[in-house]
């Protein structure tokens, strides 16, 4: 079930440096909202603020009706806020399937069963198989997560995020480091998800952003300087001056 993410007046400073400087941002149900900006603009900090790893100095974060501003990471995740990490984050010693099973366990709420639960485990394994198939990892379930290729790890991360049937998905540079083929597959995959949930997409790959996004916001020095449809943003002179000019020239820079 999708829901609206509503971020208002978010601020975070480290000493005198305002890394997030009054950001307002919404992600509507079923849309892909892309966040772009030069390196050091504060994109990852913003994701961390929304995911709950960093506490804001001011502002509110609402998911549907629920105020998550003060909730710890795990409670936000339980409320329907799932994420992928910029630097791939899985459980390397687990098999690919066990990674997804763990994610399904998280989605199922706390369980203190100390003994094996074969029936519930079989159900989870079945759902894990379906999720892995959805992200193109069918047949890879028994491999150690550490042995996957970079692109496959990114797909596994996505499967883990999807396990919770999230209402909002935070994707921090899902395309980073993938080859051209894997990148195309990832774009198709992300496009197929938007019926299920709203997506906040942080991405450097401009082709992908303009193919996928319903709306684009541009973050520069902790502030959103422009927001609108891809065409509007592309045409925005401030954006061209501050950002697009050099980025489009280098193409799909990391």
């Amino acid at each position: 079930m999708s829901a609206r993410l509503d971020v208002r007046g978010l601020r975070k400073s480290y000493g005198a440096l305002a890394v997030t400087d009054g950001v307002d941002l919404t992600v509507e149900a079923g849309e892909i909202h892309a966040l772009i900006g030069p390196n050091g603009a504060g994109k990852t900090t913003l994701i961390s603020l929304i995911a709950g790893e960093v506490r804001p100095d001011a502002g509110t974060i609402l998911l549907g009706e629920a105020d998550l501003t003060a909730a710890p990471v795990h409670r936000r995740a339980r409320a329907g806020l799932a994420r992928s990490f910029q630097i791939t984050s899985t459980i390397p010693a687990f098999s690919v399937r066990e990674n997804v099973v763990l994610a399904l366990q998280g989605a199922g709420g706390p369980s203190f069963r100390l003994w094996p639960a074969p029936r519930a485990e079989r159900a989870r394994a079945e759902r894990a198989r379906a999720l892995l198939a959805r992200v193109g990892l069918e047949g890879r379930g028994d491999h150690p997560a550490a042995a996957l290729s970079h692109g496959e790890k990114r797909a596994l991360e996505l499967a883990m995020a999807l396990a919770a049937e999230p209402r909002i998905l935070l994707l921090d540079e899902p395309m980073a480091g993938t080859g051209p083929e894997e990148g195309r597959a990832m774009v198709d995959l992300i496009a197929s998800l938007k019926a299920a949930c709203g997506i906040l997409l942080v991405e450097h790959d401009m082709d992908a952003v303009f193919r996928l996004a319903d709306r684009v916001s541009v973050l520069v020095a902790g502030r959103i300087i422009a927001s609108g449809t891809p065409e509007q943003v592309r045409a925005d002179p401030a954006v061209r001056a501050a950002y697009l000019g050099d980025e489009t020239a280098t193409g799909a820079a990391p």
Partner: peptide, 27 residues
């Protein structure tokens, strides 16, 4: 047996990557 159970899976996962486990909704 406990380490092999779903409970033990959380323990083992949090040992490897606590941040990931939290992001999956598990404290």
């Amino acid at each position: 047996l406990i380490l092999a159970s779903p409970f033990g899976r959380v323990l083992r996962a949090a040992k490897e990557n606590e941040r990931r486990v939290r992001a999956l909704g598990i404290d």
